[in-house]
Design a protein around this nucleic acid. Structure first.
Lengths: 367, 367
DNA sequence: GTGAAAGCGCTAACAT
DNA sequence: ATGTTAGCGCTTTCAC
């Protein structure tokens, strides 16, 4: 067991997960008495290069030499020094992760999916959350490239203005993958949700339930998904012969509070409407509170549909009908594509659009 | 071998050795036109060392030389190579961040706070979310130390069993700071919330509103905060002359669903109770749904108090009375302490306990 | 199959 | 104030 734990080179039996469990009492030596490849070589009676070959699982090592070296590695609890490896090999196995907001369900889902995926391939993420401030991105980018991340994953909402910015980065040779930025004709790798269709599905659901005056609470203007979902809304309305009423539309910023306020704004106009499509679940839940405060019952008086299907949607009052988007998968796929871009020199940028799913719960009833 | 590396879309668990091989067939284009310190030195007509001094802001450079070098650096858009710097200086300015769960509000708050803080000092985080699986920690730790993170921040729930594990790590010379793990007498740096007092405040609030039969939905057993909040519950009950009834306590796992189910379990016992203390807001919201389904009105029939004050608490139905804990500050403080531990050789471990705050909303009324 | 030599890009200690 | 001399720990030729 002890041998296995440390023996990175053993290719056949040890998975990453197995390799390190059950050795929590191992001493991880850091600055003080750091064991080097030279000490391993000396103790094994071979040259440094042979140890290096064993470490990298090269074929050209005699089986018995390999075994002996592995034993010494285990014995000494030798840890290869990633920095030195990186300097010599130009490989860091480190990726940059840039995200807007760790408090947004969609983004954390992407991050979680991506992280799980890259771990399978032995990569790590350097973190760079921009805290909703896209202006910080160039600085992070620089710090990230200084550390020679081998690629960068953008887990955040796209906006049209990013295009040039990202293209520049890509042209400088850093593989990038971005989420939330599907545009036909872009030439970097994108994984996105089909937001147009999602917005259409949501609106269609309301139409199918007999609603004709459908209010909408949108995301912020800068977000591409806002435009897409709005487009879907229009696309559903048109064939039903419903003319969209701009008076019934208010803009939010994805937060509960903004949904609450947007709903109030619409209510204040005293215009008739029987249903609301909110561009995310949080705003839908905020809107429900505003509706309740205005004496409207949901869903008896007003039906509402959200977007995201975050966990709390199911436990809202009433349980929220919504559009599910599988952001975890977006993260996984994005990560896989990024690694592919890095490791396969022939790989070229591709665009991917994942479909949504209507989740019927009780916030939406027949008029 | 090559086939494996390229066949990325298939989600296999690769072995460590496999993960680390396959270097020569990948071309990292961003290295191509990489400018080195030598080129800067040559163009500026000084030695490499002088450039290094300028880069590191050393005082012993003539002002005009410094200026000239800086000009060339800008002109060439030279980016120092962090790996080489790290190798030579033994400093990486990189910290490890280990967290359980990016989908938990408290943890993401910690992460956000910590990230903002370390950025001020020019550090970066390497990410290692363990996805609720603490067994993975040793593996991450190893990969992190291989990359020579200068310290590790544990942003996650503590459990007693961690103690040895963390001590070992610290003894090996890696500065660590952990959250959610306040224990008197531990000798590593801890930033935690006063959960005993928080639990007491929550329970006291219910008592003050005239409640005597107070049910409780706890967090999972492994979490230290569960025990602390439970202790606070008892400490509030005792002086009020109320004997805790174990029948009124059910265990959850922090999720909405578990709160819903725990509430059902308690309701099934048909025991009288007029109030519920849930160990977090999510479970409180789940519990409200169960209560509603059972025909109980909140707060008219049953009062409920949560814990966390996550954003949705305010928009729940009814708006949730809860205990606010400032996790963002926990993150900031933890990060600052970690950097202190790294940069100040005389720094010693310290323990910090932040206080909570009762947030009154409408889920809790006088009996 | 193994080892020797030569760096990767930078910083550090000591010169001057 | 600036340059010289040595590495940091590892990988990568290219010998043998």
């Amino acid at each position: 067991m002890l041998a296995l734990t440390v023996a990175l080179p053993i290719a056949v039996t040890v998975t990453i997960a197995e390799a390190f469990t059950g050795k929590s009492n191992s001493i991880i030596s850091m600055n003080a008495k750091h064991i080097t490849i030279g000490q391993v070589a000396e103790k094994a009676g071979v040259s440094i290069q042979t140890v290096s070959r064993v470490l990298n699982n090269r074929p050209d090592v005699a089986p018995e030499t390999r075994q002996r070296v592995q034993l010494i590695i285990a014995e000494l609890d030798y840890q290869p020094y990633a920095l030195a490896r990186g300097l010599a090999s130009r490989r860091t196995r480190t990726l940059g992760l840039i995200t807007f907001d760790f408090n947004d369900y969609s983004f954390t889902q992407i991050v979680t999916g991506a992280e799980n995926e890259i771990r399978k391939y032995g990569y790590f993420f350097m973190l760079g959350s921009t805290n909703c401030n896209p202006k910080d991105e160039p600085e992070y980018l620089r710090l990230l490239t200084e550390r020679h991340v081998e690629g960068i994953l953008f887990a955040r909402a796209g906006s049209e203005s990013d295009k040039e910015h990202l293209l520049n980065l890509q042209n400088s040779g850093v593989p990038i993958v971005t989420t939330g930025f599907y545009l036909p004709g872009v030439d970097f790798t994108v994984v996105d949700i089909n937001n147009v269709d999602g917005g259409k599905k949501a609106t269609q659901c309301l139409i199918d339930h007999g609603h004709k005056q459908i209010a909408m609470i949108t995301g912020p203007q800068y977000a591409k998904s806002t435009h897409d979902r709005t487009k879907g809304y229009r696309e559903a309305l048109r064939p039903a012969g419903i003319i969209p009423n701009p008076q019934l539309v208010a803009i939010g910023d994805w937060s509960y509070r903004s949904g609450y306020q947007a709903m109030k704004t619409i209510l204040d106009k005293q215009l008739p409407f029987s249903a609301v499509f909110a561009h995310n679940d949080r705003m839908a839940i905020g809107a429900i509170l505003a509706l309740r405060e205005a004496g409207k019952r949901v869903p008896q008086d007003i039906s509402i549909i959200g977007y995201d299907d975050m966990p709390e949607a199911e436990f809202a009052d009433p349980p929220l009908t919504t559009i599910r988007q599988r952001m975890y998968e977006v993260g996984e796929l994005a990560a896989r594509l990024l690694i592919q871009l890095i490791e396969d020199p022939t790989a070229t940028p591709t665009q991917h659009l994942l479909e949504t799913e209507l989740i019927m719960r009780s916030s939406c009833v027949r008029r």
